[in-house]
């Protein structure tokens, strides 16, 4: 579905991504793990078009990926950004409607709003509340729901468990699996390597801007190198 070939990204003089190639197939969950500053977020941000890539080819459904973020969203790619980035001055309902910004069929949007409230019942009680007043966990649910409001085929999640209590982390991962079961392909970036590998079909390990390993998610859990470096066992 999505193929990246030999992508390079620079921040000034820092070579953030160095010849990264990955592939994500239809209906998979693919996880990218790695330590802080390895370039995980940069990878997602450059797919979403908010970070410019210096070189490399990205194809989505066999077509080259456009570079403007709004053209990318139109194709059915959605990024749930790191640290939530909900709109604090908009209500929960408006936050969700922003997710459906490019859709013009109001009726369908209303149906999907109801669907989001069913999927995330926590939000239902908060529809008129400003996004900034929600707790961290509620905000995370809201960003995921907002990311789904564009009806993506391909959903990218950047550190969805960041700053969440363990029981909420558990809930977020359950939701991710539930979303995947509806046929949406998922590319997940996580610091919580154990959880990320557990739910992934396949995974990549990013180290200092380069892909260090890749493989089947469950098998990587047993890989001694990964155990040592990322799982802390």
């Amino acid at each position: 579905m999505l193929t990246i070939k030999d992508m390079n990204v620079f921040y000034g003089h820092i070579h953030a991504l160095q010849g990264v190639s990955i592939q994500v197939n239809q209906s998979e969950i693919v996880s990218i793990i790695g330590s802080n500053g390895a370039g995980k977020s940069t990878l997602l941000n450059s797919i979403a078009g908010i970070v410019k890539r210096a070189s490399g080819e990205i194809t989505f459904e066999n077509n080259p990926l456009p570079t403007r973020s709004y053209d990318i969203v139109k194709l059915g790619i959605s990024l749930v950004p790191e640290r939530r980035r909900i709109f604090p001055n908009l209500t929960v309902n408006e936050n969700l409607k922003m997710g459906a910004y490019l859709r013009n069929n109001q009726k369908e949007v209303e149906i999907d709003l109801e669907e989001m409230y069913r999927l995330f019942p926590i939000l239902k009680k908060r529809t008129k509340q400003f996004g900034g007043t929600l707790s961290g966990g509620e905000q995370q649910m809201l960003t995921i729901a907002r990311g789904l409001m564009s009806r993506p085929k391909f959903l990218m999640l950047d550190e969805p468990s960041l700053g969440l209590a363990p029981n909420l982390t558990e809930e977020v991962f359950l939701k991710i699996e539930e979303i995947n079961q509806t046929g949406i392909t998922i590319l997940l970036v996580e610091q919580n390597a154990f959880k990320a590998l557990e739910i992934a079909n396949r995974a990549y390990v990013l180290e200092n801007g380069k892909i260090a390993f890749s493989g089947i998610g469950a098998k990587m859990l047993d890989n001694p190198k990964i155990k040592d470096a990322y799982l802390g066992v």
């Binding site: 973020s69 709004y70 139109k74 950004p81 709109f87 001055n89 408006e94 922003m98 910004y101 564009s150």
Partner: peptide, 21 residues
């Protein structure tokens, strides 16, 4: 809709672009 996106852009331009605006 544009008014809402303007308010969103005031709080977070990058997230607003991610919504496809």
């Amino acid at each position: 809709k544009i008014g809402m996106a303007i308010r969103a852009g005031v709080a977070d331009p990058i997230a607003t672009s991610l919504m496809g605006a």
